[in-house]
Amino acid sequence: MTDSELLTHADIVLMQGLAQRVTAVRQDLLNADASYGELAWNWGRNHAALGAHWRRRLWFHEGELTAWAWAHLPRTYRLSDGTEKHLAGAYLAYQAHPAHAGLVDEVIEWFDDVAAGLERTVLPGAGDAFALERWAAHGYVTDPSALGDAGSWMQCNVRELTDLTDLGDPTLPAGFRFRTADEAGPEAAVRAHVDAWSPSPYTVEGYEGVRRTPGYRSDLHLLVESPDGTMACSTIMWLDEANKTAEFEPVGTHPAHRRRGLARTMLVHGMHLARAAGAVQMTVCCLGAPGHPAARGLYYGVGFRPISRDAPMIKYATTG
């Protein structure tokens, strides 16, 4: 194992490799924090602004990464509307290969040490019975606020790409057109995301970080341009060549262009592009709580089915 240090680009490469190995043997453990694409997206868009608040620890067996822990410590960051957001607690993203599940106890102990005195949250997989038992044994309990109608827990979804005829032809309305990120340019690519997720901390600097992450392909970064030049929706597809899977992350639509079928058409076109690039399966994660039905409906409507979900847990600061 290695000591606690700041998370680096080289670490992300190793962590993506572990994500690929976990996907190959236990796809039901797919986690929105620890997928091949999500690791690249989270690192790329945020490391310049938040990297000083990230700590990590890596565990190895015979030279191969078998587990990692990525702690997000208290931080303040600026949003696109000019406001600042402060997060006072600590959050942990982590992954352990199922053949080395016993390392979860070491992960928990490390997190409790690096975040001592803080409120601590984590999102183990609901299907990972061993991990849930170990987190509970260390004093973590189900997080009631995260499980409400507006909870922030995620579910992951999957569909096969072998036959896409059920989706029809991905034809956009007159005047709209598909663009790649290179065609649209950095400013438009960032604005597309910020418009969809406002207020957002995403910046051109963050976008350049995303472009430098392992697995990013500008030809799989897709946007829909409206007749007036506004980017109506956008997505990035992350191709995991080892498993022949591709992941949509993120997916967003401009508020003025929602409920017009544009995002659906973009996803269908994206799946055709992913299949042409070698993928045989597509994944996407979305909010799973009852109060967030829109994204689930969108993905179910193009043939995705749920495969895994988070089980939010918390350890209150007063518990030590």
Rank of each mutant, 00 (worst) to 15 (best):
H254M: 01
G148D: 11
S152C: 01
M154A: 15
A150M: 07
V251H: 10
D166W: 06
G148T: 08
T253C: 11
C233K: 09
E249S: 11
V224T: 00
T180M: 07
W153Q: 15
D169W: 01
Q155C: 15
F178P: 10
A192W: 07
A181F: 11
A196H: 13
D143A: 02
D166F: 09
R217N: 07
N157C: 15
E187H: 09
A189S: 14
D169F: 00
V210H: 10
Q155N: 13
T235D: 04
V224M: 00
G151Q: 02
L223P: 14
L222P: 02
S145E: 14
Y207G: 14
E208W: 11
D143R: 01
T245R: 06
P186K: 09
G215V: 10
R177K: 11
T230L: 05
F248I: 08
T142G: 04
Y216V: 07
P199M: 12
H254R: 04
L172I: 00
S145V: 13
M231P: 00
T171R: 15
R179T: 02
D169R: 05
C233S: 12
Q155S: 15
L172V: 00
A150P: 01
D163K: 03
Y207S: 14
I236L: 15
L164K: 03
A192I: 03
S145W: 10
T165D: 04
R211S: 01
W238G: 05
T253W: 07
P144E: 10
Y202I: 06
D219C: 06
C233H: 08
P255K: 09
I236E: 05
P170A: 00
A189N: 11
G252F: 10
L164P: 02
D195N: 15
M231E: 11
Y202F: 13
P186Y: 05
P199Y: 13
L167F: 07
W197N: 12
M237K: 01
T171G: 03
A246S: 05
T162G: 14
A246Y: 00
G151T: 05
A188I: 04
E225L: 04
A256D: 03
N243M: 04
R177C: 05
A232S: 11
R177S: 08
A150D: 10
A184Y: 06
Y216P: 01
G209Y: 10
Y216R: 06
D228H: 09
R211M: 06
Y216F: 11
A232T: 06
S198V: 05
A184N: 10
A192E: 12
V158N: 02
R212A: 13
L172T: 02
M154N: 15
S200K: 11
